[in-house]
Amino acid sequence: MSESPNVMTNEERVAYVQSKRKQTQLRDTMLALIGVMFFFLVWEAVVLTGLVDSKKLCSVLEVFKLFIVKFSDPNPDGALLLVNVWSSLLIALSGFGLAIVIGVPLGWLMGWYKGFDAFMRPIFEIIRPIPPVSWIPLSIVWMGIGLKAKSFIVFFAAFVPCLINSYTGIRQTKEVLKNVGITFGASNFTVFWKVGIPSSLTMAFAGIKVAIGNAWATLVAAEMLAASSGLGYMILMGRSYGRVDLVILGIVVIGLLGVVISALISKCEDFFMGWKRL
């Protein structure tokens, strides 16, 4: 029977399934690359054929050239690309970090302790619908146009999803798991700490992911209104000088950084939620 070509040993099957998986992975990577290439090709074609006015859209190569140049040339907006990136990242991450550190625990406490919820809810419900951008004038008056003012605005954008999700997450803690804690003689706080918080993590991370998107979007808006450096400022300067390439470079860099940050958060989630794998 073992001579039959259709019957594989276990090792062979493992090797076969693994090689199949690798093939699929390779194919998907290729497709992803082709997709990106295709996008750039269409873009380039549109510009080269003159379908779009070159004042409105520049070629991919020009953007790439500018990308290289901006590493050493601060013109025309007055700062190197990396300085702009750093300045934006600093604002985004400080505001976002503060939103996590304050928003998530606040959501946990409100979700677990009914009295605290009753106390905080009205304040939160009023703050929640305020568009983060509408804090810009006040924050400039209070804190000028520096890092603090923009962090403050980013904080408001990121704070709301952090709080809502960790709140909802901890409210969904299974009754039976709380009861397990109670029968072992745990105090309400211990159940909160050992059962409630771990239960809520999936939701909390989903909130953090939404928050980073909000933070990033608000940051650029804030920088366009009140800044002397940063990616948003760079885009604004590009517009003032009629430099389409600078505007597009800013947009592309913002997009790429967004991808990197999301990937980092996913890694972080994997670390805390290792049990979810498989």
Partner: peptide
């Protein structure tokens, strides 16, 4: 007094 609960009583994490 200890208790064994109905199904789905384990902490998935």
């Amino acid at each position: 007094i200890g208790m064994v609960f109905q199904s789905l009583n384990l902490m998935p994490w």
